[in-house]
């Protein structure tokens, strides 16, 4: 259990988690973001399932001659979490479909550009949301 080989599953989980997380952050395509999110969640499932394994343990079914069982509880928990993950992906994809209908694109940058153009039509699509013009601010202080 100790040393590198014993932690093999954990390293896989961490690698998958970081890969998924990176995809979520770096990708501008909303569908790819959801793929990354799925990867991120799945890594946690692996982490939980590995946690339940007891070295030398049998499957948790009562039979004669078996003393050590693996812990089935994390597996059951993860069954719930998988359902949650599926639901999240479904809701996310449904949102992407509606975003595609409303904006005609699923690229984050294009959506942002369209929103900015709507917000400040005469502005050259500034990036900061704090800029609503100096006059609004000025009148507040007067």
């Amino acid at each position: 259990m100790n040393g590198l080989p014993g932690l093999y599953n954990d390293f896989i989980a961490i690698f998958l988690m970081m890969a998924g997380f990176y995809v979520v952050i770096s990708q501008g395509n909303l569908v790819k973001k959801l793929v990354g999110l799925g990867l991120f969640q799945t890594s946690v499932f692996i982490f939980y399932i590995s946690m339940g394994k007891v070295a030398g343990g049998n499957a948790p079914i009562l039979t004669d001659g078996v003393e050590v069982y693996s812990n089935p509880l994390p597996h059951v928990l993860i069954l719930t979490a998988i359902v949650v993950g599926v639901a999240t992906t479904a809701v996310g994809l449904a949102l992407v479909v509606r975003i595609q209908e409303a904006y005609g694109t699923v690229e984050e940058d294009d959506i942002q550009a369209q929103d900015d153009a709507e917000e400040w039509p005469d502005d050259t699509a500034q990036d900061s949301s704090k800029d609503t013009g100096p006059d609004a601010n000025g009148s507040a202080r007067s």
């Binding site: 979520v24 973001k33 991120f40 996310g92 949102l95 975003i99």
Partner: peptide
């Protein structure tokens, strides 16, 4: 329509 994008952002961050 910005509600859709807002909901998606919330979904990503909320799930994380």
């Amino acid at each position: 329509r910005r509600a859709l994008n807002a909901a998606f952002q919330y979904l990503v961050m909320g799930t994380i």
